[in-house]
Simulated scan of single mutants.
Amino acid sequence: MKNIVLFASGNGSNAEEIIRYFKKNNQGTVVAIFSNKPDAKVLDRAKNHNISSVVFNKAQLNEGFVLEKLHQFQPDLIVLAGFLLKFPESILKEYPKVINIHPALLPKYGGKGMYGMNVHQAVLENNEKETGITIHYVNEHYDEGEFIFQKSVNIEDCKTAEEIAHKIHELEHQYFPEVIGKLITNH
């Protein structure tokens, strides 16, 4: 059984979908959720599923505390599911299999500060006819790692960033767990 560690900073709806997906099939198991926000709802989700959680601050992410904790869980794959901090090179050197989901069709609308509603608002303001999700490997630069999967959705009927966000969440929940499952199976 492959070990998956999730990193999340917020609500954790993607984390929840990933946990459910791997509880249904035996490709892997979510062994821990790491969060930089002590009040993040994702930590409640971890507790509800009896999954270990690790809370840390930005300094601990970069100074070895998080790396030390990761060693305890021996992840085969690290998944960033709504994790908002830049992932440190020191961790990537030891765990090169780190993936992220981005709520747009990269390379458009990526980079520092481009997350969540910031992305959806920019897509709306630029009158895009479609947007989507990109699942990619993490490297030392924001949103520049090798693409694994992209899926687009038409948003011509969307009048608000919230409507776009709803369509993107549907794509994330449908495809993110499946793509992780394929990666786990093929590694």
Rank of each mutant, 00 (worst) to 15 (best):
D157V: 08
F56E: 11
K167E: 03
H120T: 05
N48L: 13
P75F: 08
Q60T: 14
V42A: 06
V179H: 06
V55W: 03
G181W: 07
L183M: 05
N48M: 06
K151Y: 00
A32I: 05
C158E: 01
N50G: 08
I184K: 02
N100D: 13
G82Q: 00
V153L: 11
Q72S: 15
N48F: 05
E63R: 13
I99G: 05
I148D: 01
I148K: 00
I33P: 04
Y175C: 03
N48G: 08
E68I: 13
G181P: 12
I51Y: 01
N3Q: 00
F22Q: 05
V98N: 06
I133W: 05
I133V: 12
V30M: 06
I91S: 09
Y21N: 08
F73V: 09
E178G: 00
P96R: 10
N36W: 06
Q27G: 08
G64I: 07
I33H: 02
H169E: 09
T29E: 14
G111E: 09
A15T: 05
L171I: 04
L61C: 10
V119R: 02
S53W: 07
K159S: 12
K97L: 15
N186T: 10
L106W: 01
G111H: 09
K167V: 02
G113T: 06
L77T: 01
I155W: 01
I51Q: 07
K47Y: 05
A81K: 04
V98R: 04
L84A: 13
C158M: 02
I91R: 06
T160E: 01
A32D: 12
I51N: 09
H169Q: 15
G132S: 06
N25G: 04
Q150C: 08
A40H: 01
G12V: 05
P96H: 14
F149P: 09
I51W: 04
Q174F: 07
P96Q: 11
A46Q: 04
S152T: 15
H136R: 08
V119P: 03
K97C: 15
L106A: 10
L67Q: 12
I133F: 04
K37R: 11
V55P: 03
N36S: 08
E178K: 15
E146P: 04
F149H: 04
D44Y: 09
N118T: 14
E163T: 00
L92P: 11
A165D: 04
K41S: 11
H166D: 10
L124S: 03
N127D: 10
G116W: 02
K37Q: 11
H102R: 05
K159W: 00
E156R: 01
R20H: 13
L67K: 14
F147Y: 14
I99C: 14
G145A: 07
Y115A: 05
T29M: 11
K182R: 15
V55S: 13
L92V: 14
G181R: 09
D157W: 01
N48D: 13
N57F: 05
L61E: 00
V30D: 06
K129E: 15
K47T: 13
A104W: 00
V30F: 01
G111Q: 08
N25D: 12
L171H: 02
S9I: 11
K182S: 12
K108E: 12
A46K: 04
E156A: 12
M1P: 14
K159C: 09
